[in-house]
Amino acid sequence: MAIEFPKSCAELINEDPMIIRNAKTWSHYHAYGGWGKFFKGLREKKILATRCTNSQCEEKRLWLPPRCECPDCWHETEWVEAPQTGKVYTWSVVKYPGELFRLPADTPLITVELDGVCTKMMSWLKDGKPEIGMPVKAVFNTETPTNTIVDLAWIPA
């Protein structure tokens, strides 16, 4: 039996120079691996960070985003709940986001500093006008979780 040519996969847009429109849609299956627990934590209104279990390690503070192994000594880390209040370290209002952004244009992005955490956390401000040094507290999307980092947001404290 002869195999048929495909009916259509691309549409001719221009003859010279020749341009075709090739629409592509597909799904990615993404495993969160060792930090899946962080994303489960968001559903329970918890910010889960990690801490090195090596008593000899100089870094006693929390890692957030979490790490499976300590970046300094490669020992295993343990899960510890991080504080839910912090301060805005920096911010930007996004006017022209990339195609996959699920939040509206004009959403303020913020980087949050939390006490006892050695790194910072990129997130977004759900309410209010951002300012450097502004105290904020965490809020969680537990109603319609997307199971991504946008389920965590902050509001003025």
Partner: peptide
């Protein structure tokens, strides 16, 4: 996991 979803755009990361 922790950055791309927030803006999907490098200009935003530089704006921060």
């Amino acid at each position: 996991d922790f950055e791309s979803e927030l803006g999907w755009m490098y200009a935003a990361y530089y704006a921060l």
